[in-house]
Design a protein around this nucleic acid. Structure first.
Lengths: 158, 158
DNA sequence: CCTTAATTATAGCAACGGCTAATTTCTAGG
DNA sequence: CCTAGAAATTAGCCGTTGCTATAATTAAGG
């Protein structure tokens, strides 16, 4: 209690230190989970639309090199999110499917929300890719409600 | 042109590959800039409110160890954003101040926006910490407009 | 069946962002 | 002045996420 002693009467005082630490910690943790979610979401999309998710496809979609994907897939397999068969495409486990579905839904809500706010589709796509991983449950619900209110739940059935 | 050949008549087709790559690239780039922005923003806050930004203060606020801060400050100094004097606090260069101001404004808009949307202050603080770095100029303007419309620009003069 | 092209696997490198432990330097109190 | 404690520095470690280059494997066509 040193720099926060006179917070109450200082409107421009620093935010509470403990709360700020918690925000930063949370954000750091989110960052670690981001890539995993991007991968499973993408894998789910590829499987749904193409029937298979090969390393080269994933790499091409993400814009990274194939060995980078190979390394990450090992981690996802170790985490029990995907199944790998040597020299074959990858498949999602039940856990992986669950995570992919959750990520996809969240991603769609964020994107629909940005669009409902009047943002161009292109920008909404880019921004939602970055924002989706940092949206809490509370905020996500607010986004969803806003979209439904604006669109009368016609456009997006999220 | 293999998996996108029949996009036009398939409403659930994958998004354009090139566009998706660009989103992921952008997000990766943003991620790299995040920490830098967090640091300069925090340093600016500390200087404005306490007069100095010591490594221990920064470390305590971010919730990381002090040598971690030391390493990052070296990078910021190399990037010309701060000035370091051995065994003294750090100071922002003009460039650093400019970046800090930009980050702070963006952060405030995002937080105010979330609050205007009805989200609790605590959640808004946490989420805005993660979201702020992924908001494009277009989206930021939409956020700002929304806040002004909701609040009649009384609460937050952003 | 055999060769070739595509794909995956592996090895090894670099930058980054964490950490702990130990040292150096500064500052303040006696 | 000198010593103790606080702060900054340095050294060295680890895990993550990129990369390139190369090897191994599969699949497909002649």
């Amino acid at each position: 209690m040193k720099e926060n002693a006179d917070v109450s009467n200082n409107p421009t005082a620093l935010v509470d230190a403990d709360a700020q630490v918690e925000s930063f910690r949370q954000t750091r943790n989110n960052r670690r989970a981001e890539l995993v979610e991007d991968y499973v979401e993408l894998i789910a999309d590829l499987i749904d639309h193409g029937g298979e998710a090969r390393q080269v496809d994933i790499a091409q979609r993400l814009g990274v090199a194939q060995p980078t994907v190979a390394k990450m897939l090992k981690r996802l397999a170790a985490d029990g999110l995907i199944q790998q068969r040597r020299y074959r495409g990858v498949f999602l486990t039940d856990e992986g499917k669950s995570l992919a579905e959750k990520s996809r839904e969240r991603h769609q809500i964020v994107e629909a929300f940005l669009c409902a706010l009047g943002i161009s589709l292109e920008t909404a796509r880019i921004d939602s890719e970055g924002i989706e991983h940092h949206v809490s449950g509370e905020t996500l619900e607010a986004f969803r409600a806003f979209v439904i209110e604006r669109n009368g739940l016609a456009d997006t059935d999220v």
